[in-house]
Amino acid sequence: MNTKNVTVVIGEDDDGHALLVRKNLERVGFSGAFVRLRDGREVLEYFTGDPPPAAALRNTLLLLDINMPQMDGIEALRRLRANPATARLPVIMLTTTDSPREVARCYELGCNMYMTKPVVYEHFVDAIARLGSFLAVVRVPTDAAD
């Protein structure tokens, strides 16, 4: 799959974690763009504020850490899903703990995947490949909306 046109947006407060995700994705052959955001508010602003969200949404994959200050990943996910413009954005939740309650809550709110840190990047690539077909699907309505 060609990932050149894909943008990975990562909402993560820990600099080390964000850097590791980026390095490892690049190591396994990801060649798209990265956007680093530090908390839930920045994530929401990125997708719903200026510039117009449609551009931000095209070929975009969101990696969301759950534990963040200001607004945590779960709240950000809930608000993204509540907004029709961002309701179908592919979202992978990242967390250090795999409490079953939290996993259930994330899937309930409509995340596409849930991954526990430290991430096994081989799985991660598979996941992105699977989401790739999903990206292809969501691109159509996004383009139509342009």
Binding site: D14, L20, K23, N67, T96, T97, P118
Partner: peptide, 21 residues
């Protein structure tokens, strides 16, 4: 315990990840 384990694991992820780096 949940927050402690989260907070303890967060630096661990960096230790392991950058160790691998």
């Amino acid at each position: 315990i949940y927050s402690v384990s989260h907070d303890l694991r967060s630096p661990l992820v960096n230790l392991q990840g950058f160790g691998k780096e």
